[in-house]
């Protein structure tokens, strides 16, 4: 079966390969995190949450960025494939943002003494999560599906504008979050083994996201096909 110009079997095959590579990488990441990487001297063992928290944040921002980009081009070209890709990426972004927002407080409880505080980065990240939750609510809130897609595309673009502020908030405001240790003009200041583990985490989460994204995109294609058949049979 084909959805648009891409076969569902091809999407599934690609998704399966990427997901299996991602799962193997996840095992590697866990081994690196628990048995290989050195323990940070000030925070101790709890700092190892870093290796899932930061990759989840990176993947969420990547997914929301893809969603915003596809949404912007959808508003221009009105191609349904772009809208589907935007919705799939937004759903993945929401999953990884939830990982980020739940693992962070577990780390913060030990490092800062509190699960949550309304500091700029946490507040802006929670705002981003709610904006993309709103994306799905807006999408299904109109009787005309085309109007819902357009409104949701605008929400996705507005939501993505929050991402640079989240990154820069630790530089602009007083924040409990540490300053960047990787993306810096003078280069990363993390020790080599921590940087290796972090980069492995970034790669693994990204591969898993794209693997599941392909499955999700195949699902949207099949759903559009089923809706089309239903409309044709009604007509």
């Amino acid at each position: 079966m084909k959805t648009d110009n891409v076969s569902v079997a091809g999407l599934r095959r690609g998704g399966m390969v990427l997901t299996l590579i991602g799962l193997a990488g996840l095992l590697l990441l866990f081994w690196l995190s628990f048995f290989w990487v050195s323990t940070e001297i000030r925070q101790g063992i709890v700092q190892r949450i870093f290796y899932v928290h930061v990759p989840a944040a990176w993947t969420a921002f990547l997914a929301f960025g893809i969603s915003a980009l596809c949404s912007a081009v959808y508003l221009w070209l009105r191609d349904d494939r772009l809208d589907r890709a935007a919705a799939c990426a937004a759903e993945g972004g929401l999953v990884f943002a939830t990982i980020m927002l739940t693992t962070g407080p577990l780390w913060g409880k030990i490092a800062w003494g509190t699960y949550w505080t309304w500091e700029p980065r946490l507040t802006l990240t929670l705002l981003l999560w709610f904006i993309y939750l709103g994306y799905f609510m807006v999408r299904h809130s109109t009787e005309d599906p085309e109007k819902g897609k357009r409104f949701a595309a605008v929400v996705a673009i507005v939501g993505a504008l929050d991402i640079p502020f989240i990154h820069l908030s630790v530089l602009w405001f007083r924040s409990l979050h540490p300053q960047p240790v990787v993306v810096k003009p003078e280069g990363p200041t993390l020790p080599g083994d921590m940087l290796t583990t972090l980069m492995t985490g970034l790669a693994v989460f990204t591969v898993i996201f794209f693997g599941l994204f392909l499955f999700r995109y195949a699902l949207e294609g099949l759903r559009a096909e089923a809706d089309l058949r239903a409309r044709q049979s009604t007509a």
Binding site: L26, G44, V46, I49, V52, I99, T102, I110
Partner: peptide, 21 residues
Amino acid sequence: RPYWHVFAAYAIAIALIGGWA
């Protein structure tokens, strides 16, 4: 205590990714 926080964080990551799949 920090061990439980680390294990909980990793378990949450596995559960959410697995749940999405």
